[in-house]
Nucleic acid binder design. Structure first.
Lengths: 365, 365
DNA sequence: TTGAAAGCGTTACCAT
DNA sequence: ATGGTAACGCTTTCAA
C-alpha cells in the first residue's frame, strides 16, 4: 500500500479539503468530483472526458459544477495509461536556438495545438549516439509520433540501430516522420535541398559568377551534403568549375561560417568571387567576418546562403538565398505524423531561389 | 475488463511474441521482462528503476539482460501515476520563433536534460485568455514545474485568475517560475530591464544624442513597459526630454518594428536623432524600414535595441543594445524550478549596455 | 532477497 | 442512464 493516508483522512468523510496540515495537499481527482456531484466516477468520467452522451442532463450539470468548483483537471498520465495512448508528440531537433529549427518547431507546435496535442522537445545537438539515446528515452513517453528534424547520417551502425529503434516504435503503434532524410524508411518531409542549390548555382552563374567558394558542414549532415552536391551539380551544368581549395568544412552555425570565412580571408582569395554557405546562419557569419576584414559583402565578395531565415532580409546587403518555407515544413511534418498513414509517405516541399543584393550582377573585366 | 487479449493469449504461455497477427503489437511491459528473467515484476522494478539495491546480483543481471533483449523502455505515464510525480517541466513562451524565447528555451532545455527531465513547450502568443487556458491544461500534465516566460499583465481579472491557478498548482506540489514579472508571488528570474534601459539612455545622451523616438509594445507587456520606463527615466536624469509624438506602439516583433518605422518616416522626422526599440527584433525591423526609405542607419538615424540577440552583430551597422544573457536566464529559471525552494526566491540577472556602430558619437552643429 | 498484493487516477466493459 | 469493477503498467509496502 501507499502512504497510509486513506483510512485516517477518509474517516471524517469527504474530499481533499484543507485539512489544516500544510504539506502539499493532494490534487483533486475524478473521485473527488464524483463524490461532490453525488455520482459514480464512471459517470463523472463520461461527462468530463467521455465521448458518449449517455448521461442525464441534470447529472452532467452537477458533475460539471463540481469539477469547476474543485478546479479539477484530469491527470493526463492516468488517462494515458487507462486509454492506452497519449496526447503527446515528440520533436527532436538539433538546437532550438537555431532560427531554422525554431521555425520548424513553431510550425509543428502550432499544428499540434490545433489537434489538442502537446509537444515535447528534445535537443540532439551533440552526436548521433546522443540522438539514439534520445529516441530511446522518447519511446518511454509513448508519444503518438516522433518527428526527427535535422538528424545525421552516422556511420558505424548507429544509423542502423536508430532505424531499428524507430521501426520498433512504429511497430507498437507510433508514427515516425523525418525531415529531409529521404533515404530513411519513414514518412518524410522532403525539402528540395539539392534542387534548390542547383538552381541557385545556375542563377548565380547566370549573373556572371565563375569562381566560387563553398562553406559546408560535415558530410554526415545530410542537409548540408545535399545542398553542397546540388550546388556543385549546378555549377557543372553551367560549365563553371570549382576549385577544391575553396571548399571549407565548418560548423553548421553562425560561428562556423564566421570562422570559416576568417580562415578564407587569411589566405589569398584574390579572384574568389562568391561564397556559397550551405545555410543562412553560416552565410551571415561569413559576411560579418568579411566585413571585419575590410571587405564589403556584395561588392568585394558576393555571398549566398540557404533557408531564407528572417535575418536574411535584415543584413546589409540583403542575402541571396534559397527560401525554405520552414513553418510549412513543420506543419507538414505534424500533418504527416497525425495522418495515421502507415505507409512511408513522402511530402515534397519546394525551395525557391531568392536573388538579392548580396549577389549583384557581376561585371567581368 | 479491457480488450479480451489476456486469457486467450496467455494460454500458449509466453510474452508478446510476434503472434502472426499484424495490428500494432503491444509494447513490452515490465511483466514481460520479469517473466523473461524468471522473477517477479517487483524485483524487475527494483532492478530497472528502483533506488534500493536489494537484489541478488545474479537476478539483477538476468533482469537487465531480459530488458535489453526485449528492448524494454519503462512507461513514463505509468511511472508517473505509480510514483505520484512526473519527470516533466512545462515551459510557456510567447512564440518559439523569436530569438529571445528560443534562446531562453535552449538554456532551459539544456539544464533540464542534465537533470533527466523532459520539457514540454506551449506557446501563448495569442492572448492572456489563451495563456490562462494553457496553464490550466498544463496542470493536467502534472509537471514538476511550470516556467512562464514573457507573460502579460492582463486586465479584467484574468491576471488574478492566472495567479490563483498557479497558486493552486503550487499548493499541490508544483513549483512556479516566472521570468521578468517581478510583481508576481512566485519565484522569479528578474532581468534588469528597467536599469538596463536607464543606463542605455544615459550612455546615449553621453554620446550626444538629444532627440529620441521610442518603439515600444503594448503596455500590457511587462518587459516592454519596464524598458520603456527605464529609458524615459534615464533620459530625464540626463536632462533630455522626450517628445511624445515620437513614441510609437507596435507589435513586439520584427514586423512591428518595421511597420512602426515605416509610419515614422512617412511623417516629418527631421530632427529625430535616435530611435530606441524595446527589443532587438523591433530595432532590426526598423533599421530595414529606414534603409528602404533611403536613410542609412547609424548615419542618418541612430538605432538602439535591447536583448543582444545574435543578429545584433550581423546587421550593418552593428546594433547598439543592452545584452541580456538569455541562455543564463533559461538555465537560472530551470535551476529555480528544481531548487524546491518553496519561498518565492528572486534571482537577478544583469543587463549590460553594448554600444556599437548603430549609435556613433553624434556631432552636434 | 523476494514476491503478493494494494494502490496510483483513469477508462470502459458489463450488468442493472 | 448508471454504477461496479477490471484493467492499464508501474511502484512500494508488508510479510515471508
Amino acid at each position: 500500500m501507499r502512504k497510509g493516508k486513506k483510512s485516517p483522512a477518509q474517516a471524517p468523510g469527504d474530499g481533499p479539503g484543507p485539512t489544516a496540515a500544510n504539506g502539499p495537499r493532494r490534487a483533486v481527482t475524478l473521485r473527488d468530483v464524483a463524490r461532490e456531484a453525488g455520482v459514480s466516477p464512471a459517470t463523472a468520467s463520461r461527462v468530463l472526458n467521455g465521448s458518449i452522451r449517455n448521461v442525464r442532463d441534470a447529472n452532467a450539470a452537477r458533475v460539471r459544477a463540481a469539477a469547476a468548483k474543485l478546479n479539477y483537471e484530469p491527470h493526463m498520465s492516468a488517462q494515458a495509461i487507462a486509454r492506452g495512448s497519449t496526447a503527446t508528440v515528440a520533436l527532436v531537433v538539433r538546437g532550438i536556438d537555431d532560427p531554422y529549427f525554431s521555425s520548424i518547431a513553431a510550425g509543428t507546435v502550432q499544428r499540434a495545438e490545433q489537434a489538442g496535442l502537446i509537444v515535447t522537445m528534445a535537443v540532439a545537438d551533440r552526436s548521433p549516439e546522443r540522438e539514439l539515446e534520445i529516441v530511446r528515452t522518447l519511446r518511454g513517453q509513448r508519444p503518438r509520433s516522433i518527428i526527427l528534424a535535422g538528424s545525421r547520417i552516422a556511420g558505424n551502425g548507429i544509423r542502423e540501430t536508430l532505424v531499428e529503434e524507430l521501426a520498433a516504435y512504429r511497430e507498437v503503434g507510433g508514427s515516425v516522420v523525418v525531415i529531409s532524410q529521404h533515404d530513411l524508411p519513414f514518412s518524410t518531409v522532403s525539402v528540395d535541398n539539392s534542387g534548390g542549390a542547383e538552381r541557385l548555382a545556375r542563377a548565380l552563374t547566370g549573373l556572371g559568377y565563375r569562381r566560387f567558394g563553398i562553406l559546408r558542414a560535415h558530410t554526415s549532415l545530410r542537409t548540408s551534403q545535399d545542398r553542397y552536391e546540388g550546388f556543385v551539380a549546378g555549377l557543372r551544368q553551367a560549365g563553371a568549375r570549382l576549385d577544391e581549395q575553396w571548399v571549407i568544412e565548418a560548423d553548421f552555425t553562425r560561428a562556423g561560417g564566421y570562422a570559416a570565412a576568417r580562415g578564407l580571408v587569411e589566405r589569398d582569395i584574390a579572384g574568389l568571387e562568391l561564397v556559397f554557405a550551405v545555410n543562412d546562419v553560416m552565410a551571415i557569419g561569413a559576411m560579418t567576418a568579411f566585413r571585419e576584414a575590410g571587405m564589403t559583402p556584395g561588392r568585394d565578395i558576393a555571398v549566398a546562403g540557404f533557408d531564407d531565415i528572417a535575418a536574411a532580409l535584415d543584413v546589409t546587403p540583403a542575402l541571396t538565398t534559397v527560401a525554405v518555407p520552414m513553418h510549412d515544413v513543420g506543419r507538414t511534418a505534424m500533418d504527416l505524423a497525425l495522418s495515421g498513414d502507415d505507409a512511408s509517405t513522402v511530402r515534397h516541399v519546394t525551395a525557391d531561389v531568392a536573388l538579392r543584393e548580396s549577389t549583384p550582377r557581376i561585371r567581368r573585366p
